[in-house]
Design a protein around this nucleic acid. Structure first.
Lengths: 201, 201, 201, 201
DNA sequence: CATGAATGAGACTTCATTCAT
DNA sequence: CATGAATGAAGTCTCATTCAT
């Protein structure tokens, strides 16, 4: 069982530090002492806050994915129409800025691949992550903006696979990766799949 | 510096064991003792074969990616025309069977994200991996089979991102993932992007 | 130096909790957190009450042995004549009911074997513990009820050794231990040693 | 599960060192570093030999009780007749010399009182420990040397309780304890219980 | 060629303790 | 009076590595 919520106000900042270290060093290489050094607290304080190293890492993963999911949901809220919202989602999914976030996703998958509990969490996260995409597309179809023969679920699976897969060349800094061009190609592809003309972007 | 090729014939089998263990336990969690147990040799024998733990892991990664790249090159050789070759490549990239392979790719990226030397290797691997796709598309364009306004490199980047991204739901066994449907969608998308009609598949 | 008597009325209950935990977990395995959990107070409250962990344990030991000694003295007060008093003492020493008490005695000896201060206390306790036995036997001899060639002190040493030794099979729940039979044998043996006929029991 | 028998020839000596330290410091206070210092090996060597601290302690307990049981069995073999054998057993049980042994018994009971696995072992040990006593008494009865109304099992339970109980004043160095006198009283008591005249000792 | 013995470095973890409130 | 936050000391444990055979 996981101990939660011990400790005072600094706990939140310390968790941020854990996320930062994990993005830099990797899940399995994140030691208490690393996080302690960055957060400026004693190692035993981490133990006091999180219980065990594993619990700290898992909570950092939860926190970090939670943030990303919320960012997606926020992105979806800004578009004026389904297509615009979809474009916002794609852009958010492809944007390069918060590099820590991308790295955390890779850590998340790596860890989920070897930990049953995290795997379950990853299923839940993915469901929430898919939601705004599915909703936007469904609404577009209902309004007659989009047309497709494919099942919406499968379409979203492929779209998200592309967004996820793009993470690899970015994290590994592959030289062939050109952000602007890739974004254009992806949006064009989605537009084509949904029968949307002249994607203004 | 990395020691190579010490040891006799069992070395190959032992390397396979290392790959197997890494696919199951993950890169950073693969210990000498795990591999020794699976391979049926002493820990010190592993050291004798590979030098250090890191060297063993890196060689396992090399071996495993090399296999995958060769499989791709082989897949490309079987098609009668560019489109068929491309479909073979896509199918090979999406096929689910050698589950260890997929897991190893994730390990490869995870490790590459945190190790400069591996990162460089990942660049080289990715180049070879892209080659057959690029060649097939270029030839199709030359023959007039394919038509596209996009840059071929960027197109391939997106295609491979999709193939890579599909790995996540598979490794994490996400329930929404339906292999057959996803394959159809991906192939349709590529067909559409290249202006290919009636994708026979 | 040992701090005493800090804290309010709950202190007594908390000390009982410490005794209970020690009987269950053992002297060296009794942690502040265990006692805190059972007593329903914070760890720091224990420290406030008792000072240090060692002080808490020693006080629990004192309290617990004090209880036992008083029970013996009370048992001695109930008999009508020396033999009856002796039997009461033996029965009290062999009775099985307050299981926590027996376990505490073992903890007491274990701790005394490794702590000089406790060892001294154990000498004092043992003297008080022996007293009622010696008194009863001496009185019996004076009255002509008992006859023995042995030194009374040595006799009591052996009697108490038997009572103490019986604790082992009880604490360890050895299956061959039969309370009723053992009591009869012990009483018969003492009767025989003192030349008492027909032990009414 | 317990790892057994790793390590080379020094293992036996190291185990002796563990027993020695445990007799001095007590079960729960015996640290790896203590044993390592006495045995002149590295702490990690202990881990290599025994697996874990707990396993080391348990094995030391087993070894030590095994020795004691064997000593008893050997003592029983030396007597010319049942009474002599019985006296040898009692003397061996009361002798003060190998002080480490006595202390180990206390540690054994302390540990058994809190560990189910050890408790079971203690039952088995006790059975073997009782055997020579029971055999000697039974044979004496068969030969007509001994006469008693008590059940032999119960008699032995009480005799062994006395031997065990005598351990307390010795370990705690209680000043009233006089070895010679106690031995005489115990032997006289057993002689009396078995109807043996003029105990030659 | 391959192994078992032995070890040191470094991590996690436990736990009593200090301190401010 | 009592507590929660934070910490340091010290222990166990893991694991790669060295070495002799």
């Amino acid at each position: 069982m996981r101990r939660r919520r011990a400790g005072g106000e600094r706990r939140g900042e310390v968790l941020k530090a854990a996320i930062q270290v994990m993005a830099e060093r990797g899940y399995d290489r994140t030691r208490f002492s690393d996080v302690a050094a960055v957060a400026g607290v004693a190692v035993s304080t981490l133990q006091f806050y999180f219980g065990s190293r594993d619990d700290m890492l898992v909570e950092a993963l939860h926190e970090s994915t939670e943030e990303e999911v919320r960012a997606m949901e926020a992105a979806a809220a800004t578009g004026a129409n389904p297509w615009e919202r979809l474009v916002r989602l794609l852009e958010r999914g492809l944007v390069t800025v918060p590099v820590g976030t991308w790295r955390m996703l890779l850590e998340f998958w790596y860890a989920s691949a070897h930990d049953p509990e995290l795997r379950e969490h990853s299923v839940a996260v993915q469901h929430r992550y898919r939601r705004p995409f599915i909703d936007a597309i469904r609404e577009g179809i209902d309004r007659g903006d989009f047309h497709t023969d494919e099942d919406v679920e499968d379409l979203v699976t492929v779209i998200l696979a592309t967004l996820d897969g793009v993470l690899i060349p970015r994290v590994c800094e592959h030289p062939y990766y050109r952000e602007d061009r890739v974004r254009a190609v992806v949006i064009a592809q989605v537009a084509s799949a949904l029968g949307v003309r002249a994607p203004a972007h």
